[in-house]
Design a binder for these strands. Structure first.
Lengths: 243, 243
DNA sequence: ACTTATTTTACGGGAAGCCGTAAGCGCATT
DNA sequence: AATGCGCTTACGGCTTCCCGTAAAATAAGT
């Protein structure tokens, strides 16, 4: 494939060039807002990152990551949103968190910056904890500055968390929901009677499956969060986008 | 106030100029994402709208609207987001829908374009119904084109709804929640036992207040939406941002 | 003012959920 | 093999919720 060869060659040339770079070279943006993509490309250009590309779908982003590895011209940085609107095109990856997971499997060393309007510190905290992202920039009133600061920080190997979040992350860290918990809660939110859930869990090869265990787990979750009723829990999980 | 005089004069000059304009002249953007504001200003400039301004807070937006009227140089168009992140600065208006309501009280003729990432057709439908907005552009994979199309359409006095929404608005229009309904559902989502709700409703001067009526109303709502359990209803209401 | 219709309330039986106790099971240690 | 520990399951009573029926109250029509 001559195209790939050419790309790899170009990349090597860059790497070998004597001009000391102090910024990322190849950046991939995964973001479904076209306006945001345009603006982002422009901002990167101002930082002399000319080799930036974007994908409007998670699947496309993954493909580009894979191809870039094949071509020997891997991306240095992935900037991704969290939520992608489903517009009918069936996608195997539907959100930014899943995209990060899969991308990491292919290219563990890639730096990841999340750029999203997710305002919930608990969710963001999870990203740093479980996905080891390198930075988070909240789409907001200072995002133009934050983005530049984040790029600089991450390039130097630092993590980037905006001040506003750093505080409240500690405050709010209430409870970790396991997959098991989420499965149960989703069933309830979907209208299932609790006595139907054991069968469902068996089907999903999750355990424990007994009604008693489910009751107990639910009681524990609610107790830890200070809730008394399932409805409260559902509301909470919806707010935190756990379900 | 010399500044205001000058502005008004400038505005009159423009209006009287022989050059036939086919686009808005004075535009106000209410949007809390700085990046989006920058991009929007640029886009408007491409359309030769140079007299565009933005506000990061709803209250600021309202102030500018008021001032523009005082100065005799009113805005032709308000472009606003729906959700504004609360960053601690206390605001009397906290979201786009409320902003539109208040702005309309001061300047009923102003055109309103909502530019948001709200994906729920029911919510958007409400905006056209209750707030009589002139257009809706969804921040998404085609928003750069949509925005320009919307501006052109609205300028010609047409309404603008993207195709993708036009369809599903009809499909999904399921149920209208009254204040009474919302009050009950909020109580449940907050963890209240149903037998505590009568007292609450009396306190709020809402009726009927009997437990039986509440049970009946809940049953009816769930029946119409095809739900069987409260938890399902809570999940639904959270998704639709009814609570 | 009387009847009719609709809404609201009261009540009661059955279903679902909640919660504590105790029995069952697997697993590691000795 | 026996013991102890933790997790899972089974069961029973108690509460809350669900839903139907009927009485009471309110609104509407003549």
């Amino acid at each position: 494939m001559p195209v790939h060869r050419a790309q790899a060659w170009k990349y090597k040339l860059k790497s070998l060039s004597l001009k000391a770079k102090n910024m990322f070279e190849r950046v991939l943006i995964a973001e479904d807002q076209q306006s945001m993509n345009f603006w982002m490309l422009q901002t990167l250009k101002e930082l002399e990152i000319t080799d930036a590309h974007y994908a409007c779908y998670c699947d496309d982003a993954l493909t580009r990551i894979k191809n870039s590895l094949k071509d020997g011209a891997p991306f240095d940085l992935l900037i991704t949103d969290l939520s992608f609107v489903d517009d009918g095109r069936t996608q195997s990856i539907s959100n930014g968190a899943d995209l990060i997971k899969v991308v990491r499997q292919h290219q563990p060393t890639i730096k990841v910056l999340v750029f999203s309007s997710e305002p919930n510190p608990t969710v963001v905290n999870m990203l740093f904890d479980k996905l080891a992202i390198d930075g988070y920039v909240h789409k907001g009133r200072t995002d133009t500055i934050d983005l530049k600061a984040a790029l600089a920080a991450i390039y130097k190997g630092k993590k980037f968390i905006p001040e506003a979040f750093r505080v409240s992350i500690r405050q709010k860290n209430a409870f970790k929901f396991s997959n098991y918990d989420v499965a149960i809660i989703e069933q309830i939110a979907g209208g299932a009677n609790q006595n139907k859930i054991p069968d469902y869990l068996k089907q999903q090869n999750m355990k424990p499956t007994s009604l008693s265990s489910i009751e107990k787990r639910l009681a524990q979750i609610k107790d830890e969060l200070g809730f008394k009723k399932n409805e409260q829990l559902i509301a909470y999980c919806k707010d935190l986008k756990i379900i």
